[in-house]
Design a protein around this nucleic acid. Structure first.
Length: 444
DNA sequence: TTTTGAGTTGTTCGA
DNA sequence: GTCGAACAACTCAAA
């Protein structure tokens, strides 16, 4: 059983199929091509998930580094495996990697069996009646619901683990100093789901946009690595507005995976060709100010600092900081997307690339180009007491209430307080600049 | 084939 | 302070 992004024993069709076939060797391949660009936060968290999986398999998880085509085939030969089982991968890299692995295994006369996927509805499974893929979320959501998904699989009772194969240890996987990551692994993921379901789901519609509250599920890292499968949580959802709303959020993940499956190049390039001609600036100092959380716009800086400290950022704040990078600083969305992928524990290529493209107006969203987030308005609306900003921007701790979103209007801060930067750009001015650049593009 | 209705998440201005 | 209109026009999906 080759584990990739399905690091769990429960509700795992590929593992069940492997266990039915005989003794199972659980394998994880430390693939440099995925490991290197993951960033220290995600690497550390993944290592934690692997440690938990190792424990859950009674210490049988085999870890090998190297190129999967070589490693998987070599291990299969070593243990005279009858077949290699895995869940299908639909990402651009995963597809080419699996093709190479399949070829290497075929040479060794070993079957490569793919069962299930990281999604409730696999990419490519839902199309318009004419067979074309959807490019708009809402019709995709309707079709996705109508398509439906299987009920969760039973947990495997007794798996016979293969013995006596030497593995390696992961090294250099501690999170950077001061970074606090969520607890990794399947058990923690199921606990997180249960806590969300019991405590926050009922208020999801009202609280989901509030970064100062715990109103979201925070399941994204667990879904990313398959510690929890979406099918498992979908089975626990009813039809209240809150449940329907959260189901739609799960569907967004699947929609973007579907879009990327049909348009692999959209991971790094604008989905709408016309938008590739957008005039962007290059300004390393401004990018650094954004990345380090010193733009002088409190909610932007709070978000960027939360990203550094937790490897996670509230979704509403992701939109705000992304809008700021693209529409206030006029920098290329791919720079922001890369920064997110380097720091996010939940960093997922399809969700990240297309979330950014949604903000940048280059993706599937048909919304008008003049939608530009105002960081002050957004801050006041979604962090109405300023609690979120003060948590992450201690320089502003002395400002009470929502005025913390406009520190430049406060006449004088108490002495001895760490200085907070003035806004690096004027939002009103840059908004106009962004609109004129979009207009120029439309005008031809 | 043509037509029609609709599209996650917004902001600003003026009455 | 509140509310509706304007921002402009396009693509997608389905009837």
């Amino acid at each position: 059983m080759w584990f990739r992004r399905d690091l769990r024993l429960g509700d795992n069709p590929a593992l069940l199929a492997a266990a039915r076939a005989g003794a199972v060797l659980p394998l994880f391949v430390g693939d440099e091509a995925l490991w290197a660009p993951s960033g220290a936060n995600r690497r550390a968290w993944l290592a934690g998930c692997l440690a938990e999986l190792d424990e859950a398999t009674g210490g049988h998880l085999l870890l090998r580094r190297g190129a999967p085509a070589q490693v998987v085939a070599a291990v299969a030969r070593e243990i005279s495996a009858g077949a290699v089982y895995a869940a299908a991968d639909f990402g651009p890299y995963g597809r080419s990697r699996d093709e190479a692995v399949g070829a290497a295994l075929a040479e060794a006369s070993v079957d490569f069996v793919r069962v299930g996927s990281p999604y409730a509805v696999a990419p490519g499974a839902v199309t318009k009646p004419d067979g074309d893929p959807y490019r708009v979320f809402t019709p995709y959501f309707r079709a996705w619901r109508a398509h439906g998904w299987e009920t969760p699989r039973p947990s495997p009772r007794a798996i016979r683990w293969a013995e006596g194969v030497a593995g390696e240890r992961l090294g250099g996987v501690e999170p950077p100093a001061g970074v606090a990551l969520p607890p990794p692994g399947e058990r923690a993921g199921l606990r997180r789901w249960a806590a969300f379901r019991d405590e926050a789901l009922a208020g999801y519609v009202e609280r989901r946009d509030r970064p100062d509250l715990h109103g979201t599920s925070r399941l994204s890292p667990y879904l990313k690595f398959g510690c929890v499968h979406p099918r498992t949580v979908l089975a626990g959802l009813g039809d209240t507005p809150a449940e329907e709303r959260w189901r739609a959020e799960l569907c967004w993940r699947e929609f973007y995976a579907d879009v990327l499956w049909h348009h692999p190049a959209s991971a790094r390039r604008s989905l709408q060709p016309v938008m590739a001609a957008m005039r962007v600036d290059r300004d390393e100092e401004r990018f650094a100010a954004w990345a380090e959380g010193r733009t002088g716009y409190p909610v932007v800086d709070a978000g960027m600092r939360q990203l550094r400290a937790e490897g996670w950022m509230h979704n509403r704040v992701r939109m705000i900081v992304a809008s700021f990078l693209v529409k206030d600083l006029h920098l290329d969305w791919t720079l922001g997307a890369r920064h997110f992928m380097a720091h996010l524990v939940d960093g997922d290529l399809s969700s990240n690339s297309h979330g950014w493209q949604w903000v940048a107006g280059t993706g599937t969203d048909a919304a008008p180009y003049f939608r530009v987030f105002n960081p002050v308005t957004q801050g006041r609306r979604f962090d109405p007491d300023g609690t979120y900003v003060r948590r992450w921007v201690p320089e502003l701790a002395a400002i009470a209430g929502a005025d913390v979103h406009e520190p430049w209007t406060i006449p004088a801060l108490p002495l001895g307080v760490e200085p907070y930067p003035a806004p690096i750009v004027d939002h009103v001015r840059e908004r106009d600049e962004a609109l004129s650049r979009y207009r120029a593009l439309r005008g031809g």
